[in-house]
């Protein structure tokens, strides 16, 4: 791996950490708080591609596991990997990899801007769905809920997460226009 790729991965992890430190941003007609940390994960997938996005999440996991308070609300330490919402954290990895893989494909083939932003949105939305599947599965197991109950408890987060996917697609488009495919780590 080139030093530049290593630095980009570290910088994106730092961006995810910073997005967890900032206060949630209100979005929409009826305000939905956007906790920006999972936005950072989608962004890493869209911008850095499958390998870069996956490595970014792995680095974030390492920081959480060694006990640094890098998740939103100053959470960190091994307890986070075993709490009721650990599935979302674990789901970050497949989410970033799938989002990255899909947007890698899109970025190499599509040149039309509207089509590109639409396919980035689809990629990020796929990432959101995968993250939620992991989150729901672990919540249902750890709290012995039925799947239906866990899905219902999960539904409040869906609108906010779709907005995040849209923001990730928009930012991904602007970055692809600015930097081309140079920053994809393959």
């Amino acid at each position: 791996m080139s030093t530049r790729s290593l630095v980009l991965i570290a910088l994106f992890t730092a961006i995810i950490v910073v997005l967890g430190l900032v206060p949630p941003i209100m979005v929409g007609f009826f305000p939905v708080p956007i906790h920006a940390q999972s936005l950072g994960v989608l962004l890493a997938g869209v911008v850095l591609g499958a390998r870069g996005g996956g490595l970014t999440v792995l680095l974030l996991w390492v920081l959480v596991a060694v006990g640094l308070p890098v998740l939103s609300g100053g959470r960190g330490g091994l307890a986070v990997f075993l709490g009721p919402t650990a599935g979302y954290l674990v789901g970050f990895l497949p989410a970033a990899v799938v989002t990255g893989w899909l947007s890698d494909k899109a970025a190499h083939r599509i040149t039309d801007r509207w089509k590109l932003v639409a396919s980035f949105f689809v990629a990020a939305a796929a990432g959101v769905v995968i993250d939620h599947i992991f989150g729901i599965a672990w919540l249902a197991f750890a709290a012995s809920l039925t799947l239906a109950e866990a899905v219902i408890g999960n539904l409040i987060f869906v609108p906010g997460d779709l907005i995040k996917a849209a923001i990730a697609a928009y930012v991904g488009l602007l970055l692809t226009i600015n930097f081309g495919n140079r920053i994809r780590i393959g």
């Binding site: 910073v18 979005v27 970055l175």
Partner: peptide, 24 residues
């Protein structure tokens, strides 16, 4: 707005990646 905040933040961060890599 999230988009207008994140775009300049991410772009300026990516721009300094080369410098850091060269320094390393």
């Amino acid at each position: 707005r999230p988009s207008t905040i994140i775009v300049p933040m991410v772009i300026s961060t990516i721009l300094c990646a080369d410098e850091i890599a060269n320094a390393i």
